[in-house]
Each structure stands twice: as C-alpha cells, then as structure tokens.
Design a protein around this nucleic acid. Structure first.
Lengths: 215, 215
DNA sequence: GCCTGTGAAGCTATTCACAGCT
DNA sequence: AGCTGTGAATAGCTTCACAGGC
C-alpha cells in the first residue's frame, strides 16, 4: 500500500478526475497544469504538487496525457473492487443523494437503502431497494458493505452509526449536523449544512464594498 | 469591525453554539472547555483557542457561563440584522434544505425559492414561496437578499450564480459539484457530495484491521 | 487540584522559484 | 519560450506546556 496522501489532496484529486472526465473535450489529449488549475479554481503549483501523488508525470511543452492521468487517478482513488454503499434515511435528502449518485460513478453503487418509516420499506426508491431499519445489520453484513451515507435526523445519527460500525462499515458520509463518535479505524466525512450556512452568513456579512473580477 | 477569524474557527464556533443551545441541559449554567471539546469531538486546547476569538472568558475552577457564551458567540457569528436567504433549485435536495432550515435558526430565514420548472412556481413549497427563475434578480433585489443556497444541477450553477451576484448576493452555499468562479468580495462555501463520497471510499479502503475505541 | 489564557513549538498545507527538459 | 518537478520558504492551524487564578 502506497504512502497515505493528505486528505485535502485526495479531495482535489477526485475533483480533477471529475473535471477531466466530464468537462474536458475528448479530442484534446493533453492538458497543462494551468488548465487543470483553471477548471478546478486552484493554483497551477497546487495542481502539480497534488499530481506528484500519482504515478503520472507530464512532459514540459506537452503537459499531461489526459487518458493516462484519468487512469492514474483511478488507480489511486478507486478501491480494488467496486464499492457498495448503504444509505440510511430516505427523506428528501436521502432521495436527493440517491438521485445524485444514480449511475454517476462506475465503481460506486448505492446497493441498499434503509428507513424507519414502515411505508418506505419493502419497495425500491429511486431504483434502490429500501429495507426496514431492523434489518440494517443483517443486510449490510450480507452484502459486504463497508461504506454508508447517513441522512437521518441528528438524534438518530449516533445510534445508527454504532449499528453500522458493528456491522462492518468503515467509512461514513454524514449529513447529520452532529459530531459523531467513532472508533479509530473508521473514517467519517461530515457535510454539515447548518455550519456551512452560518459560515456563509458570517463571511458574507464582512465582505464590504463592491465585487471585483480578477484577471 | 473586529479582526477576521480563520474560517475553520468560525465553523467550530458555530458548532459550539449549536451544541450548547441544543445539547446542554439548561439547569447546568457552567461548562468547562473539556466538556465542550467532548461534545464537539475536538481537543480542549482547540476549544480554548477558538474561544479566544470571542469576548467571553471563562474562570478557572468554574468554566464558562453557558448563557454568556451563547450570547458572545451570537454577537460574533450573527449578522447585525436578521438574514434572508434565497434558495435556487427546488428538487429533492432543495426541499431537504427547506425542511432542514425551517424554523431552525431565529436569525436566518429562507425567504424565497426559485425553480425553472413552471409547475413549482407560484405556490409555497415547505412553507416558502417559489418563484419562476426569470424573476430571480428582481425578487432578490426587492427583498434585499445577500445570501443564497444553490441546489441546482451542475451545469446551471455558474449561470445562476452570475445572476445572483449581479443581483447583490455576497455569500453562497453551493451544493453543485462544480468549482464556481466568483469575483472577489463574494464568499462561496461548497458542500460537494461527489468529492465527499470519494474521500470516504479512499480512506475507508485503507483503514485495515480492527476498529478500536479509545479512552 | 484542576481550571483558563496564551506564548511558543510543532505540524500541515500552500506558494515560490528555479533547474532541467522539450 | 514555456512547461514540469521539486527543494525551500511561507503561511496557516493545532497542540504543548506552563504561568496565574480559583
């Protein structure tokens, strides 16, 4: 297993790959660091530094070969085997997540959904079968799921997480606006809209004066 | 205007306030930094450092007075006047956001929603009036809105943002998984689930071995 | 004793700047 | 001329450790 890359770098590498696959014309086979930088809204030096983490190297005067770069990023970011993910909490947010990821990523699939509401269980929602919450541990273990998305209300997040971890989950994307306790060996990524909106309000409040486009 | 605090600190201060108001028993009027730290899952030193940014100081042996702390955090984080926010894109995600923020924050209100779909316009959704997209600039200017939440599909994010900025918006919470170009003087906060899930997969994939609870 | 507030140290992330290549 | 790869410099963030207070 290769050296552990910093978390922020991983985030940007994932972004670069997405931009290359989705927003770069296939008929242009090479790309310069400053072009990636422009797409990702970061500095060219940042891009080159990040790409040191990959096996892929560019050549001066030509840049990076896009297809090779995409492949190198895949080798770095993707798990060895396709990843099955569980989604817990099929409210508006859960459905938004299901819709968003549906068919988006060739190697990541939301394989099961769970909800406490009895009327949601037993049928597919946005193409994913929804199970009752009681079967969570069972189904997760059965499908060999190691990754989960938590889109339940705050109070339920910790108990559900404990159950997921006990069932073998090692990575969690958490939308609940509460800090979760996890044992070491489990990774949690938080997307907290309450905090995010407060940050926006704070920063927007002290941006006085006129806007100004640069370059 | 007081000194600009680091972005990360603002995020945590917002979290501390939420934890104090929602998860601390009112009958306990004082709290130690290590108790805040435990709630927020950060180190006690981090909490004390963050709280240096506030006017509030604790006393050794007693800790911080919770009510004073909440008030100090409010003075720091909240805008002078109550904030009206626009939400653009009323899909599943938009509705999740509307539901989430409904009545949650006494000083932040989602005051208008917008969607291209004609059948959504003209009626309230989750209690917020939904306007057709064409009236975005007009309504935003009319209501004096300076903050917006972007829950539109990726391709529409940049054009909508440009329109919002032209109409006077200075802070944006962006859910679209694309890097946005903004003029200086405008703050963007990204909540990118595509990147977040890839990070989870990456990290979970290299967490080998058993889980272990500490302390 | 155990707490807060904080300078200083340590660590992490980003940017600079330039040698070397094409 | 303009690019990559990277050591060195810088900037930013977190933790340490301890003086001073309760």
């Amino acid at each position: 297993m290769t050296r552990q890359l910093p978390d922020k770098t991983i985030g940007r590498l994932s972004l670069y790959r997405r931009l290359l696959t989705d927003h770069w014309p296939v008929e242009i086979p090479f790309i310069f660091s400053h072009q990636v930088a422009r797409l990702a809204q970061v500095s060219p030096a940042q891009v080159r530094r990040d790409l040191m983490g990959t096996r892929c190297s560019g050549s001066p005067g030509r840049g990076y070969e896009v297809s090779a770069l995409i492949e190198a990023l895949g080798a770095l970011l993707d798990a060895a085997d396709p990843v099955r993910v569980a989604l817990v909490g099929v409210g508006n947010l859960g459905r938004a997540v299901l819709t968003f990821f549906r068919g988006r990523h060739p190697r990541i699939e939301i394989a099961a959904a769970f909800d406490i509401a009895p009327d949601k269980a037993g049928r597919p929602i946005v193409g994913v079968h929804c199970h009752p919450m009681e079967r969570l541990a069972e189904v997760v273990a059965e499908l060999g799921i190691h990754t989960a998305i938590l889109s339940v209300p705050g109070p339920q997040a910790q108990p559900v997480l404990d159950c997921l971890v006990a069932a073998g989950v090692r990575g969690i994307l958490n939308f609940a606006p509460v800090p979760l306790r996890v044992p070491s060996g489990v990774h949690v990524e938080n997307l907290d809209m309450a905090t995010a909106l407060e940050k926006v309000v704070y920063h927007a409040g002290r941006k006085a004066g006129a806007v100004r486009w640069e370059s």
